[in-house]
Amino acid sequence: MERRLSRRMFSNLLVGGGLLIWLGTILQAIFRYVIPPASGQVGSLSVLAAKTTELPPNSGKIVRYGSSPAIIVRPPGGEVRAFLAICTHLACTVQYRDDLAHIWCACHNGHFDLFGRNVSGPPPRPLEELQVVTRGNEFFISKRA
């Protein structure tokens, strides 16, 4: 009796285990399929952001940096800086406000100073700063090393 039962248990285990492995393999493939692969955006991507004539003092411009928006700003009397234009609160695209002379997010009224630091509103962190290199009369932006 005991022997017959263990044989049944063995076959149950074999069939059940095989079914579980089969199901796991299928689910694993589906799971890996729906998670998007890395965008392949290289860290050293350098992008022409603006020409000097396009960026007068006290202005900013949204540009494409890989698949993300970036903002390049020229304060009234300071050096040109660039940041990823994604608000650290809930990922809206920020903009330069010439009346306030700083960066602003319209979605939830978040304010960032010209160093990208969160100074008021709900954003919890500063904007991610990008490196600006001037070549002739053109500004190029890239990720900081």
Binding site: I62, V63, C87, C92, T93, A106, C107
Partner: peptide, 10 residues
């Protein structure tokens, strides 16, 4: 426009 600033009132 994915590369424009978010407008107010979202």
């Amino acid at each position: 426009d994915p590369f424009a600033s978010a407008p107010a009132g979202i």
